[in-house]
Nucleic acid binder design. Structure first.
Lengths: 140, 140
DNA sequence: TTGAATGCAAAAAATTTGCATATTG
DNA sequence: CAATATGCAAATTTTTTGCATTCAA
């Protein structure tokens, strides 16, 4: 998977570079990382720091390949993850800020209902669901 | 409803001002407005333009009262609406960008499932669901 | 070799903040 | 009159862009 991304890039006349590999590795190890997180992570991986623009462009390139995807946990920061780590819905607590997740399967009925009533093919994983986790819900 | 917001503000030692009223009116008439939209709308309502910071602060004040709420349709812009216009889920098309909506009721099973499995009290109206509208889905 | 990718610095875009002044209650 | 709200300008924060240089293929 991760190793043939270089070939996919080359197949499109694009290139695999050490920078892109480091960005990909950072996304893989962080699971949910903002561009800023990735910049910080690669700065810690032993190599020279990457400029933010390189990280933004690398994420864009990797996303256009389908190697990574992003989810919006809140308004201020897309978080990137490997494409194969995308099959869940994020639950962001308004109280404590914790991010939990649930199986995408939990939402299949909703997806089906939206498809039936609106013809809309929903991707419930792209933006997080906000609300109150069980602990915070109790306190209210 | 809208008219006793002044009293609610005063009850908290805060104030109702012409600026806040104009912001509230703009939110009411636009239905889904970004702060930028509100700035533009009040500039057209006959009065003097409001400075962006006044609009941001007015929206914050009105939201803290529960008079307005906001939804994230995409990553770059919260959209404000009257609190009583909040009961639907937004569906944003990745193809054409159109924003549709469906009844919150469509998601009750999902909300129930998340509550059951995670104890999480979900507010499905806060962030939009992305996907493909029927027209764009056909084209793929 | 040659065009895509990088790095830097400057530009944008979107909020936020400090502070003097104006206004509400 | 006292404290809150406004307006402006400057500061932040986050992301994008131009361009000369480097490097993958």
């Amino acid at each position: 998977m991760v190793q043939d991304i270089g070939e996919q890039l080359r197949a499109q006349g694009r290139r695999m570079t050490p920078q892109r590999q480091r960005v990909l590795d950072a996304v893989a190890s962080l699971a949910h990382a903002t561009p800023e997180d990735v910049v910080a992570a690669v700065a810690r991986d032993g190599g020279a720091p990457l400029s933010p623009s390189t990280v933004y462009r690398a994420l864009e390139a990797l996303e256009s390949l389908g190697a990574v995807g992003h989810t919006h946990l809140d308004h201020r920061a897309p978080t990137y993850h490997l494409a194969d780590h995308a099959d869940h819905v994020h639950l962001v607590c308004r109280g404590c800020g914790r991010v939990d997740q649930c199986e995408r399967a939990t939402a299949v009925q909703f997806e089906a209902a939206v498809l039936r009533s609106k013809g809309f093919v929903a991707d419930v994983t792209h933006m997080a669901v906000h609300g109150w986790c069980s602990d915070c819900a109790k306190k209210r």
